[in-house]
Structures are given as structure tokens and as C-alpha cells.
Amino acid sequence: MSRTVLVLVAAGLMAALLLIGLALPRWLLFLVTLAASHGIVSVGILVIMRGGLVSFGQGLVFAIGGYAAALSFTQLGITDVIVLILIGTAAAALVGAAVGPLLARYTGIFFGMLTLALSMVAYGVLIKSPAVGGSDGFNIPRGTLFGVRLEGAGGDYALYALAILVTGIAATAVALHTRSARGLMTRAIHGNGLRVEYLGTSVQSVMAINFTIAAALGGLGGALTIVALGHIEPTFAFWTQSGEFVFVAILAGSHSVTAVFIASLALELVRSFSNLYFPNTWQMALGLFLLAIILFLPAGIGSLWAGRRKASPSSGGETP
């Protein structure tokens, strides 16, 4: 797919979703809004994962984006949701840029565990901060968009549209990036980092930049979530939250950015309906669903339509 085609397809998809949104019931609008804002965090994981690393601490940047946006609202009185989202994204990107170089020298599971440790320290600090509500967190009133307060059915749709557009644009940017020379370098690192080093590229700097991109996406997702949810609490940084982001990324597979959003939506729908129809065994239903996907779609949901074309990856450098 050439870049122009990609952008056109993405624009078409977003326009279609905006139209469909007009016909959706409100509960589903909200569910899609949250699925999109969580999905974009998983897109960030995908960016790192292409380099062969998995972060189990994306909850950290998710929480940073969320708290930065939420506090800008309650403490600074900034109510415009677009500004809030930009603040959240920027705050998380800054943290990502600071921590990224430090994390870039870690490999495999240790990278995952260090990110997990960092997010859990942040979780602990948040729980011990009564100024931001401690473990109960705090509420954020509904924001404004171009001076109009987002409430009622119209507000729900506006948030839905915003989520579709913001995450859609960010995801398209990521898709374009992965097709750039630097983006392809990440795949090469996954194949064999040492070879890439010998070719004169710094693996650490590529990974640090990837981490920063992922952090920005995490912050974006966090800010978007609190704007829609109206609440934030330390569990944003808890390991189960980070684990869920990884889960969605794995379910989607690394073939397609769109698949991440579909996986995220599927997870929310399965959870919501199983919670209602099997209130005693919804975790079991969720677990079985996840197992089934991993078993029957080994390359992820994305392989349903994007799989075969890239079945013979250029990164055939797995051999020792």
C-alpha cells in the first residue's frame, strides 16, 4: 500500500465510523470511545514490539497522560478537551524521552519487568498522595470543545467523534512511520540487533525513539480516557492495566494497526456482555475467549485480512 493510498483509506475509514456513530446507541458510543482510547495505547506497544520488546509498564505513561490532563482541568481550569489531550500526550512523551534512553539497553523480559517495576512504583506513589485523591482518585467534570460543554447525547457523540479522529490520525501517523526508513529499521532490529549495529545504526537510539513514540501514544490514550470517563485513579498505572494493553496488542498481531482497535473493541464487548450474562464466571469467559483467539488466530486478528501478504517477512534473520 503506498502512503497516499494508506492516508486515503484511513480518512475513508474515519469518515465511515463518524457516520456509523450517528446510528449507534449511547452505551455503544461510549464503549467504542473507551476502546479507541485504550486501543491507541496498545498501538504504542506495537511500535515497541516491532523491535522485539514488550513493555509491561505502559500503564505508567497511560497514568501520566491521564493525571496530567486531569490535573490541568481541576487545578489550572483548562477545560478544552483538545488542549487537555495535547497536554497529556506531551507530558507522557517527555517522561518517555527521559526514561527511554535508560530503558533502551534492556532486552527481552527484563525490559518488560523494569517497565513494570517503574509503573508499580508510580502506582505506589499515587496511592500515597492524598492531594490527588489517593487510591480513590478524583473526578473530572465534563470538558468543553470549542467553548461548548460536552454533555448529554450530543456530548457523547462529540467525544466519540473526537476519539475516532484523534486516535485515527495518531494511528495513521504510526502506520506511516513504520513504513519509513527508521520504522523499517525497527523490524531489522527485531531480526538481529547486532547486525543492525554493524551496519552503523544505533539500536539504542532507535529503541529510545520508539519508546518515546509509545509513551506519547500512551499519554494520548490516558488523556482521552479521563476526558470520556470523568474519573482517574492509581489503577491506571497498575500492572493489570498494563497487561491488558499488551493483551490487546497480542490479540491484534503486528500486521495491522486497525486490528488493534478491533481487538480492543472485541475485548470491551466480550467483557461487558459476559459480565452481564455470566456475572459469576465472566473472568472464565474472558479467559476462554483470549485462549481461543491465540489458538486459532496465531498471528492475531489482523491476520484475517492483512496476514498472507506479509507472510514471508523480510526480517528472516531469526537464524543464528
Partner: peptide
């Protein structure tokens, strides 16, 4: 967690 509760509350009322 609270995120799930907010969603489920909306589902209870609206669905």
C-alpha cells in the same frame, strides 16, 4: 476497577 464500573453503569441504564 472504576473504569469498568463506569461502563457497566452506562450499560445498565442505556442497554
Amino acid at each position: 476497577g472504576a473504569t469498568k464500573q463506569v461502563q457497566e453503569l452506562r450499560n445498565l441504564y442505556q442497554r
